[in-house]
Simulated scan of single mutants.
Amino acid sequence: MNWAGWPLDRILILFVSLAFMMMTVQVTFFHYRQNFHHKAMWIPVLAAPLFFVVGMVFTFYRTSWLSTLFLILMWFGILDGLIGFYYHFRGVGIRVGGWELRNFLIGPPIVLPLMFTALSGLGLVAVYWR
């Protein structure tokens, strides 16, 4: 593969797509561990691999409809990550002892949904890059 001549936006979309592949594994492990006790846990588990596939296809086939689809998915990813942060933060608070440090260490990871949001934001930067 010849990387020479690839614009920065294309490399960023590739990076974001691969990061969502890794995010798929992590999110699935954490939510499986909790037995998907809340239906909202399925959203990032199903969305992250979709983001990966669409991003990889968009990396190599630059069409306007893929650009639009990728944009919509990245905006959805930002929203999903923010909702996930709310649920994770609330999940720490309902543990015995509330928002104590130990609950942040053993409770739902509050940074992971923010990473989902940040990756989606980076995907938007790549698409809007001119």
Rank of each mutant, 00 (worst) to 15 (best):
Q34A: 13
G93T: 08
Q34K: 15
G97C: 12
S64D: 14
M56I: 14
H37E: 15
Y61C: 11
V53L: 15
V57W: 13
L50C: 08
F76P: 01
L82R: 05
L69Q: 12
L73V: 07
L124A: 06
V111P: 01
V25L: 09
I72V: 15
F58E: 11
Y87I: 05
F29H: 03
F29C: 05
M74K: 09
S64A: 14
T63F: 14
G81E: 06
G55L: 13
V96F: 04
V92R: 02
L50I: 09
Y32E: 02
P108W: 01
L79C: 11
D80I: 12
P108R: 08
A40E: 14
P109Y: 00
V27A: 05
T63D: 14
V57R: 07
A48W: 04
G97T: 10
R95M: 13
R33Q: 11
M56P: 03
G77A: 07
L79T: 14
P109K: 00
L69M: 14
P109I: 01
Q26G: 06
M23H: 09
S67P: 06
V54Q: 07
V54Y: 11
R33Y: 10
T28E: 00
F104C: 00
L50T: 12
F60R: 04
G77W: 08
S120F: 09
R95G: 04
D80E: 14
Y61P: 00
T59C: 09
Y87F: 15
G84K: 00
I78T: 14
L73Q: 08
V111G: 01
V25Y: 13
A48Q: 11
F70C: 12
R95V: 01
F52S: 08
F116A: 03
F30P: 00
V27F: 06
V53Q: 10
I110K: 00
L69H: 07
F104Q: 01
I83Q: 04
P49L: 04
R62I: 11
M74N: 13
F76Y: 11
A48M: 08
Y32F: 03
I83F: 09
H31Q: 02
G77Q: 06
I94Q: 09
L69R: 10
S120C: 10
K39F: 14
V96C: 02
R33M: 09
S64V: 15
L122E: 01
L82E: 12
V45L: 00
I94N: 07
G84E: 03
R102N: 02
M23F: 12
N103R: 07
L101I: 08
G93W: 11
L101P: 01
V96P: 07
P113K: 03
W42H: 10
G93L: 05
G121P: 08
H38K: 08
R102C: 01
G84R: 04
T117Y: 06
S120K: 08
M23C: 06
V27R: 03
Y86M: 02
L73G: 15
G98F: 09
Y32N: 05
F51D: 04
G84C: 05
I78N: 14
R62M: 06
F29Y: 06
L71I: 15
L101Y: 08
P108A: 11
V53F: 13
L112I: 05
L73C: 11
L79N: 08
Y32S: 05
F60Q: 05
